[in-house]
């Protein structure tokens, strides 16, 4: 029985083209007899033929060695015979960078470096790169001066500057390499090169903006008012309007004295007066400051007097306290 079906399958397989990779079967030799007849007949013939074809695919499919997984048996499909086009181009190989080219021409081979090395300065194991690395400039608190040093140059600042320049140079090189890669379409997929700042000559962004009507009106207004009379006696052109922004915006403080805004003018004048006085005298008289100074002086004087009086008879301390209390009471 099994042999018979297997034989049938092979005979069918010879008749039909079976592409197992796409789970597809074709019957290129079949002629549809019912094409001209009714829809129902056509449908039946199609289904009958399709059943045969589906059986042909299933025969080939279920004959494959299956592995039983958690979700049921699964088979490994052969690669499709009927090939279909790709969606996107193959990823292109990255061209070598300038350094890689140079290293190749000189025969420089890349060596693997240790991640951590012994740092003599701090006597500890440190990474060979990044923050807190071996031979970190930050670990050197003193740079000894040499005879050749120029006076007035900060060696720390100089070192920082040099580092900055090296980083900038590297960034420039990186950009150059990326541009080269972009030329052959091998830019890494997550990187974009975008034009910034100065627009490319001849492009739309480079063209000057068309002047707006408002701008023109403003300019016309300014020109017409550029006479001694501010354009008051000039003849107006037909359709010309008065300038929209005439003169400056000025704000005057209230003349009458009062609270809030009214007080501002006084303050302003005081300020001016004080600054003038400060130029003439060494220190302008500050009444509140003078009063506090006077008070402090007075307090100090009283304290001194008390100390001198209590220092003469040390044995009478409690009495002193009594005195103090009494004095306070009297004060209150």
């Amino acid at each position: 029985m099994a042999e018979e079906t297997a034989a049938a399958a092979t005979s069918m397989a010879t008749n039909y083209e079976v592409d197992l990779g796409n789970l597809m079967a074709c019957d290129p030799s079949h002629h549809i007899a019912a094409a001209q007849s009714s829809r129902e007949e056509l449908r039946n013939e199609c289904l009958q033929k399709a059943t045969e074809l589906a059986q042909a695919v299933a025969d080939a499919l279920f004959a494959l060695p299956a592995t039983v997984g958690r979700d049921g048996p699964s088979v490994r499909l052969p690669p499709p015979v009927h090939r279909l086009p790709r969606e996107k181009h193959l990823p292109r190989p990255k061209p070598p960078t300038k350094w890689e080219q140079f290293a190749k021409s000189k025969g420089i081979v890349k060596h693997k470096k240790n991640k951590r090395e012994w740092d003599e300065q701090t006597a500890s194991w440190k990474r060979t790169y990044g923050y807190d690395r071996v031979n970190d400039d930050r670990d050197v608190p003193i740079i000894e001066a040499k005879m050749t040093d120029e006076p007035g140059v900060d060696p720390f600042a100089k070192r920082r500057d040099e580092k900055k320049q090296r980083v900038e140079k590297q960034e420039k090189n990186r950009l150059g390499n990326l541009k080269n890669a972009a030329k052959v379409g091998a830019l890494p997929s997550h990187i974009q090169l975008a034009a910034t700042a100065v627009p490319i000559t001849g492009t739309k962004a480079d063209l000057p903006k068309k002047a707006k009507k408002e701008d023109l009106e403003n300019v016309a207004g300014m020109a017409s008012s550029a006479t001694a009379s501010g354009g008051k006696f000039d003849k107006k052109l037909p359709g010309e309007k008065a300038p929209k922004k005439a003169g400056k915006n000025r704000k005057f403080l209230p003349v009458v004295e009062g609270k809030g805004m009214g007080n501002l003018e006084k303050q302003q004048n005081d300020k001016i007066l004080n600054s003038l006085l400060a130029k003439n005298f060494e220190e302008p008289l500050d009444v509140s400051k003078a009063i506090t100074m006077y008070k402090v002086k007075k307090d100090n004087k009283r304290r001194k007097e008390k100390q001198s009086s209590s220092g003469s008879n040390k044995k009478l301390k409690p009495q002193k306290k009594l005195q103090k209390k009494s004095s306070k009471k009297t004060a209150a």
Partner: peptide, 13 residues
């Protein structure tokens, strides 16, 4: 699910 395909007829060739 992945479908089967059946192409019937001589005109496809």
């Amino acid at each position: 699910t992945k479908p089967f395909f059946a192409f019937i007829g001589e005109h496809f060739e």
